[in-house]
Write a protein that binds this DNA or RNA. Structure first.
Length: 552
RNA sequence: UGGGGUGUAGCCAAGCGGUAAGGCACCGGCCUUUGGAGCCGUCAUUCCCAGGUUCGAAUCCUGGCACCCCAGCCA
């Protein structure tokens, strides 16, 4: 595929020309292990690993694990699984910010010795008050001018655990009057007597992200440190740190994070959906998480294609979820085997077809890829068709079955509806009586006869029962971003259909296998499937021109 | 309000002083034993607005306007 131009590649190209980093490209994906990855992270992963790939560089995976209160091992495992599934490899470069805690501590001591950092006894509230506002400068902390010796002593004792949580912080000494609030003596260390998932109880002071992040990039010799827009005005702080320390200086570049229509993307909200049981876990197929998309039936290829197609820029944007779905269909169309399955079965008896006869009809597995071959599908006197493929009173432009009308059963015969049986109570159609034209078997000369429509079917005697989970978008509003976001949830985002009828070849389908159910959509085998008791997830529908016509 | 950003079609997004790419969506048509796929076509006389520079401006300059981010001991 053609590589799409973007401003980051331009910067890298310029840097190559000026030999800024010796022509090297080294990026990293730095998640905090406090939740599962979502499609927005996928954009960043594809960007960082894609750049490394295209420029013959390297990309690291680094966990930004500086806050033990929120982080869990479960998340570090899921994140690695998701990055790998997306198709990227960090080889032996799996790092943790916590690997650098000792180094970071030394750096902090260096700053103290330079008179560029101090221990502050102000409470969190007081720090906030002293910070000032957008329009008024802040006030210096009373502890700002402590001697270097006292700072060194206090900081050492902070580390040793002599002080309670929240009682002191280490702050950098920059400028309390800076118009950039990030430069008003930001906190570097806080006291937190919490045990860390990797360092255990070794530390009771933990570096703030702002203090840890830039130095971590520096230690790893990252050339282009790519992050999202909200860190743009933290950059002067990161620059200040590496300059004061006199260490390797990566170039930070900010890009706009992904937003998707009909979706919430913040980790906080996704966590809430999980905790409040609006969905069944982080990998619920309705979630925009990588694991949710995977279970839903998305392919890594389709997500990478999506990342390429949305591009990278600095303007905040909300991408139409239809684009994601298009990428998925694009990929699945080329690779998914076609099968016939009936979600809402309607019994159809072919009156003039011989009793007890079974024909094995040849069906094409994928018209987009002849190499995928053909299979045999059993046909007999009684079949199921989709309830929606019959209308007693067909509307205009309806090309399917209705009384007296002919239609083709895919790969089989042309049939005509000659009778309709209804439930005497409800009036609901329960069975169709049809006749078939024995001359019109698919492949025979007579089969060329034109009929309005072709519908799918499954032989009743051979059908397998299955459960199908039909998903719809989780939110009804295009932009469920407001505070009332929970009221905007779609009450029908999951519909469970049981006793669906699928063709017998599906007996050997394995978990995660993907299929196109002809004329319906793409489906995959869910993890909940048991031997002889299949569960399918509807990944995405096929484009449905008829639904559009009918709606209009 | 001080600071930092961003404004090109319904949604993304190229463009970098030489006369508005591409994708999605939408709308037509062809084709089709999936109302799928594929193919063809339509879709910005104008780039947030107003001035200016220039033979020539989405691109350069000036001044506005709109939207987003920042006042965590979160990341």
């Amino acid at each position: 595929m053609k590589i799409r131009a973007n401003f980051i590649r331009e910067i890298i190209d310029d840097d190559s020309k000026t030999n800024k980093f010796g022509g090297k490209v080294h990026t990293r994906f730095p998640p905090e292990p406090n939740g599962y990855l979502h499609i927005g992270h996928a954009k960043s992963i594809c960007l960082n690993f894609g750049l490394a790939r295209d420029y013959n560089g390297l990309a690291n995976l680094r966990f930004d694990d500086t806050n033990p209160a929120k982080e869990e091992q479960e998340y570090v495992e899921s994140i690695q699984q998701d990055v790998r599934w997306l198709g990227f490899d960090w080889e032996d470069r799996l790092y943790y910010a916590s690997d650098y805690f000792d180094q970071l501590y030394d750096y902090a001591v260096q700053l103290i010795k330079k008179g560029k950092a101090y221990v502050c006894d102000l409470s969190a509230d007081q720090i906030r008050q002293f910070r000032g506002t957008f329009t008024e400068p802040g006030k210096n902390s009373p502890d700002r001018d402590r001697s270097i010796e006292e700072n060194l002593d206090l900081f050492e004792r902070m580390r040793k655990g002599e002080f309670p949580d929240g009682s002191r912080t280490l702050r950098s000494k920059i400028d309390m009057a800076s118009p950039n609030l990030n430069l008003r003596d930001p906190v570097m260390y806080r006291i937190l007597h919490a045990s860390h998932q990797r360092t255990g109880d070794k530390w009771c002071i933990y570096p703030m992200y702002d203090w840890a992040h830039g130095q971590s990039d520096s230690i790893e010799k990252i050339t282009h440190s790519i992050c999202t827009l909200e860190f743009e005005d933290h950059r002067p702080l990161y620059d200040w740190f590496v300059e004061q320390l006199g260490i390797y200086h990566p170039q930070q570049i900010e890009f706009a994070r992904l937003n998707l229509t009909y979706t919430v993307m913040s980790k906080r909200r996704l966590l809430q959906l999980v905790e409040d049981r609006h969905v069944n876990g982080w990998n619920d197929p309705r979630m925009p998480t990588i694991s949710g998309l995977r279970r839903r039936g998305y392919t890594p290829e389709s997500i990478r294609l999506f990342a390429d197609r949305i591009g990278v820029s600095k303007s905040e944007s909300t991408v139409d979820v239809a684009l994601l779905e298009d990428c998925l269909r694009d990929d699945l169309n080329k690779r998914a085997s076609r099968v016939m399955a009936v979600l809402r079965p309607l019994r159809l008896v072919i009156e003039n077809y011989p009793e007890g006869v079974v024909e094995e009809l040849e069906a094409i597995n994928n018209p987009e890829d002849p190499a995928m071959g053909t299979r045999k599908v059993p046909f007999s006197k009684i079949v199921y068709i989709e309830h929606d493929d019959f209308r007693e009173n067909p509307p205009k432009k309806y090309f399917r079955l209705s009384p007296g009308v002919e239609v083709r059963l895919r790969y089989a015969y042309i049939i005509k509806c000659v009778g309709v049986i209804k439930d005497p109570q409800s009036g609901e159609v329960t069975e169709l009586r049809c006749t078939y034209d024995s001359e019109t078997k698919s492949g025979s000369p007579q089969s060329a006869r034109k009929v309005k429509g072709t519908i799918h079917w499954v032989s009743a005697a051979h059908a397998l029962d299955a459960e199908v989970r039909v998903y719809d978008r989780l939110f009804m509003a295009e932009n469920p971003g407001g505070e009332n976001w929970k009221e905007l949830m779609n009450p029908n985002s999951l519909q469970v259909l049981t006793k669906c009828k699928v063709e017998p070849s599906l007996a050997k389908a394995k978990i995660q296998d993907r299929f196109q159910f002809e004329r319906l959509g793409y489906f995959c085998v869910d993890d909940d499937s048991r031997e002889g008791d299949k569960v399918f997830n509807r990944t995405v529908t096929l484009r449905d021109t008829w639904a559009k016509i009918e709606k209009a």
